[in-house]
Amino acid sequence: MAFLSEEFLPSLFPGGRGWDSFWGACLGSLFAGNPINSYIIGGQMLEAGVSIVAVTSFICSWASVGLLQLPAEIDALGWKFAVVRNVSCFGLSMGISFGIAFSLKFFEV
């Protein structure tokens, strides 16, 4: 974060809930590893001014969509299952991010 300009991260998510959610989910899908990393990176993204919608879809897709482990999932459970599950989880990540935004607005947090 120290090496990125303050404008860099918000520029990746130019606004509009739909696109923020989509790009957040795309970014999260590319990463793998312990979800604790996504929490820390997500917290830093929030501090940098990225929307809660983008951060939420990023966190959700990090943990539930796995492009890097797709070959292993295909090998164990078949390509149909792997593709359907990952596409569903990508959609779910976006859905949850909208749900979070709505809920936080509803509870006025």
Binding site: Y39, I40, I52, C60, L104, F107
Partner: peptide, 11 residues
């Protein structure tokens, strides 16, 4: 500790 209880519970 990063996002707060409300966010975590809803998520």
């Amino acid at each position: 500790s990063i996002f707060g209880w409300t966010y975590v519970l809803i998520l």
